[in-house]
Each structure stands twice: as C-alpha cells, then as structure tokens.
C-alpha cells in the first residue's frame, strides 16, 4: 500500500497524469495524422477505393505541372505579403492612437476590436460579399465620388483585394497585443529623449519601435501562419474564382481532397505547404536577430 502511495505521489506519475490529455491528443490528433498524411502523399489514395497504391514521388512531380497549384501558391504568397504587413501597420497605428490617458480609450479599444470579434463568422463573410457586389456598398461610395463602379469579383486581378481588405479589417487582436506592449515602455525613455530634443517621429523610430520589436515578431509570426491558412473567406465569398484568381492554397487543398477526391495528391500539397511555411517562419526567426531588440543586449 505504501509503495502504491509512493508511486501515486511520485513527481513522474503526477506529471504524466496531468499531461495525459495532451499526450493522448498529440499522438492521436497530431502525430498519427501527420505520419499518415506523409504516407498518403506517396500514394494515389482516394476515399472509397480500398487500397492505395504507392506512386513514389509522382504526386510531387505533378505539382510542378499543375497550373492551378502554381497559381494558388502565387496568390497565397501575394495575399500574405500584402495583408500581413498592412494589418500589423494598421494595428500598430490604432494601438498608438489609443495610448492617450483617457477613460474613453477602453471604450474605443472595444469598438475597434469589434471587427475581429465578428470577422471570423460566416455571417460577416456573406455581408462582405454583398458589400463588394456589383451594386454593393463600396460601389455606391465610389459612385458618390463620381467614380465608375468596379466589378470586384468579376476581374481575377481585383478579386483578391476584398479578401485582403477583410483580413486587414480584423486587426483587433494584434492591436490589443501592441497596446499592451506600448504600456510597458517606461515613460522615462520618452522623457530622456525629450530632454535630448527628439521629435515625435524620432521618438517613435528610436524608442517605440525597438521596444516593441519582440511583440512585432510575435504578431508577425502568428499572423503569417494564419494568413497562409486562410480558407473560409475564399470559400464563402469567391469560391476561388474568377478564373482561380482567389484560389487560396488551403482552398485548393480542400477542393482536391473533398471535391475531386484526390486524397493522396491533397496530402502531398499539405506537406509542401508545411515545408514552405516552416521555411518562411524560420527566415523570420533568423532575421529577427537583426531587428528585434532584446533587453539582454543593451
């Protein structure tokens, strides 16, 4: 009995008892799917067929000749490269705007958070579609300024912009993280800079940005990852059209898997996505040495 008690209260046992949910979940819902996905990416597996036959690297070779795949890769990169910096700049701008000491600021922050609050829902995606429709809100505004209406979803070069705008519009959580970071910057830094005669811009560039850089890094990585995975907006608003002009990577993977039932091929695409994203995240991390300012260096 004593031995049993000793076992139960042993740190190793306690640790594994509490960590068990994660370990179980990690093995069943992350590791096993990843390994099976890797296996399927070398097969021509599809639902319904009992056995998948090994096709070697042909799925990956096919990617290079798949025009839609190459196009979707380009579109996703474009989406990430435009929407993420815009969103972060906008979030920082609003966070900076709301640093004033005023009771109303908390209220304003909530107001500016509303788009992020509702933006993930299907409801807002459908509204967005209507806003950019041929006779939608945006075109009414353009009309009001005497400009001609734009057929947003009819032109493959333009169709991506409503989606980018929707992503930028949801800047709320980045803004709140920035706002918390801005609060942490000691006011003595600014006072010292003022004595040295630094102006507003100079203070922003020399104090605010370096002090915020770890938070910028965090936001950059989180937003890049989620931008790469963008699916719902494209699926609901444009279905990838026109002429695959908004065929986001995740949407194409979904289509290959569940529309055309090419599970093996879709798995290989998922893996390419994982590799591309890992490389980009790694590059951001490596580059952070040059622009992220840490307390330890100073």
């Amino acid at each position: 009995m004593n031995k049993f008690k000793k076992f139960i209260y042993n740190d190793n046992t306690v640790g594994y008892v509490f960590a068990l949910p994660f370990i179980f979940g990690f093995l069943c819902f992350s590791l096993v799917p990843m390994v099976t996905s890797l296996y399927y990416s070398f097969t021509d597996y599809s639902l319904g067929t009992k056995s998948a036959s090994f096709v070697g690297l042909s799925n990956f070779a096919r990617l290079f000749t798949d025009d839609i795949f190459i196009k979707s890769l380009g579109i996703t990169l474009k989406y990430v490269l435009i929407s993420v910096p815009l969103k972060l700049a906008f979030a920082l701008f609003v966070a900076f705007l709301l640093t004033r000491k005023s009771k109303a600021v908390t209220l304003y922050r909530s107001l500016y958070y509303i788009p992020s609050l509702v933006g993930g829902s299907i409801a807002v995606a459908l509204v967005w579609k209507q806003i950019f429709a041929r006779k939608g809100l945006i075109n009414s505004v353009l009309d009001g300024f005497g400009l001609s209406a734009i057929n947003w979803f009819g032109d493959e070069k333009l169709a991506l912009f409503p989606l980018i705008l929707m992503s930028v519009w949801q800047f709320g959580s980045s803004m709140i993280i920035f706002a918390a970071g801005l609060k942490e910057i000691p006011t003595s830094y600014y006072e010292a800079a003022m004595i040295d005669g630094a102006g507003g811009w100079k203070k922003f560039l020399k104090i605010t940005l370096p002090c915020l850089s770890p938070i910028i890094l965090y936001n950059l990585i989180m937003q890049t990852i989620s931008a790469f995975m963008a699916f719902t907006q494209a699926f609901v608003i444009t279905q990838g059209g026109p002429n695959n002009g908004t065929m986001m990577y995740a949407l194409y993977v979904y289509n290959q898997a569940f529309k055309y039932n090419n599970m093996g091929y879709a798995c290989s695409m998922s893996w390419v996505m994982l590799v591309v994203m890992s490389i980009i995240t790694l590059v951001i991390f490596k580059s952070s040495k040059f622009w992220v300012f840490s307390e330890a260096d100073s």
Binding site: F29, S30, V32, P33, M34, T36, S37, Y40, L47, I225, F228, M229, F231, A250, V253, Y254, A257, M263, A266, C267, S270, W271, M273, L274, M277
Partner: peptide, 12 residues
C-alpha cells in the same frame, strides 16, 4: 497549421 492534418484526421 490545422490544414496539414485536416485530411488525414478526416480519414481517421
């Protein structure tokens, strides 16, 4: 990214 394990999870 959730999308990477989406298909195999579905299959499981």
């Amino acid at each position: 990214p959730g999308q990477v394990i989406m298909i195999p999870s579905y299959l499981i």
